[in-house]
Design a protein around this nucleic acid. Structure first.
Length: 355
DNA sequence: AACAACGTCAACCGCGACATC
DNA sequence: CGATGTCGCGGTTGACGTTGT
């Protein structure tokens, strides 16, 4: 393979760029534009390959780059977008003005990934691998590498409470502990996660069978293997949370209680995107971005995780449109989040959110 | 003070997609 | 239709700074 074709014709310098080289590249590109990158080094008087020049310009010298650390809002947005797009760093970066794919990728690998990893409950993950009958080995690998939809960590152990995505919201929470981040009481600090996960009833409860939505059984659910039944009506059989009343009176309880647990966001996505007839009530309670996206751009069945999904350009435009239309403030606040009002997963002690 | 371990991030590498010849 | 050139992307590396012992 060797070097890129444009680098073979002449001896090129490699490694870090000197200020002089930067100046030459800036002068040339700002004056003439980059045009064909392969000819830039020759015209700009640089002993570099065009590819290196392009990279240097895009990742470092471009005037519209935003330098400095990522804000909690940006971090939250990255987590959310990553849950939809997977490791499509360039696509994610397009929604973060002034940020490059390289920057987002580095940030994910160095910061967010660790924060998410600190939230991972290993037994829960192990059980997930057990319970999920599709591609268990690949999923296990994904969990280890964390190159997985973070929403896979949506595991609920309690029936009567509602959960945010612990991954995204806890990342936000962990950033709130950073010394360079001080929540603004005036809500200037946007809580994107709460925007995406409104605290409205979205999961049925065993104690209130009437809250069940008939659409839920159409969504594949998972139950953590270590789930301890907290209702006299619940037992665990074959890794599934079973309500003994299920099947006895489907008109009263619905036919879906046998596997009733909390769905993963990606599964909501998948189920909905496969044209499963979720009701409007359910969709209203799901992340508006997801519901809008899925209702407008159904994808083919068969893709199991977000990074398997093909996201068409129109879908990207749609995601972009939704994100840019999102309000910059919401009624929810970080203080409410910090108080534990929303995040109550018992497997994730609050101390683990500390970075 | 010296060294190791760790974290960050700029840069490189290899590959696939696409355009042009 | 295949060869070649170019671009863009994601994964990986390695230099350098920071922190811990």
């Amino acid at each position: 393979m060797g070097h890129h074709s444009c680098c073979n014709k002449q001896k090129v310098k490699r490694g870090l760029w000197s200020p002089e080289e930067d100046e030459k590249l800036i002068n040339y590109v700002t004056t003439y534009g980059h045009g064909c990158w392969s000819s830039v080094p020759r015209l700009a008087g640089l002993q570099r390959c065009g590819k290196s020049c392009r990279l240097r310009w895009i990742n470092y010298l471009r005037p519209d780059l935003k330098r400095g650390s990522f804000s909690p809002q940006e971090a939250a947005l990255i987590v959310e977008l990553h849950s939809i797009l997977g490791n499509r760093w360039a696509q994610i970066a397009k929604h973060l003005p002034g940020r490059t794919d390289n920057e987002v990728k580095n940030f994910w690998n160095s910061s967010i990934k660790k924060r998410l990893a600190s939230l991972v409950d290993v037994p829960a993950l192990a059980s997930l691998v057990d319970v999920h009958n599709s591609k268990p080995s690949e999923e296990a690998a994904d969990f280890v590498s964390l190159n997985v939809n973070p929403n896979a960590f949506i595991l609920s152990d309690q029936r009567d409470q509602l959960y945010l995505s612990p991954s995204a919201s806890s990342v936000l929470q962990s950033f709130s502990h950073d010394t360079d981040f001080k929540p603004n009481p005036s809500n200037e600090n946007v809580d994107l996660i709460h925007h995406h996960f409104p605290i409205t009833p979205m999961f049925p409860t065993l104690s209130n069978p009437a809250s069940f939505d008939p659409s839920w059984p159409l969504i594949p659910f998972v139950t953590p293997k270590h789930h301890v039944p907290n209702s006299s009506n619940e037992v665990v059989q074959d890794d599934k949370l079973v309500n003994p009343t299920a099947g006895l009176n489907p008109y009263e309880y619905g036919p879906f209680m046998a596997t009733q647990t909390v769905p993963k966001l990606c599964e909501i996505l998948q189920g909905n995107l496969c044209n499963m007839p979720l009701t409007s009530i359910s969709l209203e309670n799901i992340d508006p971005l997801i519901s809008k996206l899925s209702s407008c751009f159904p994808i083919s069945a068969g893709s199991s995780y977000s990074h398997d999904m093909h996201v068409a350009p129109k879908q990207m435009d749609f995601i972009d449109a939704i994100i840019t239309s999102m309000p910059l403030s919401s009624s929810s606040s970080l203080s409410a989040l910090s108080s534990g009002q929303y995040i109550t997963n018992p497997t994730l002690p609050s101390s683990s959110w500390d970075p």
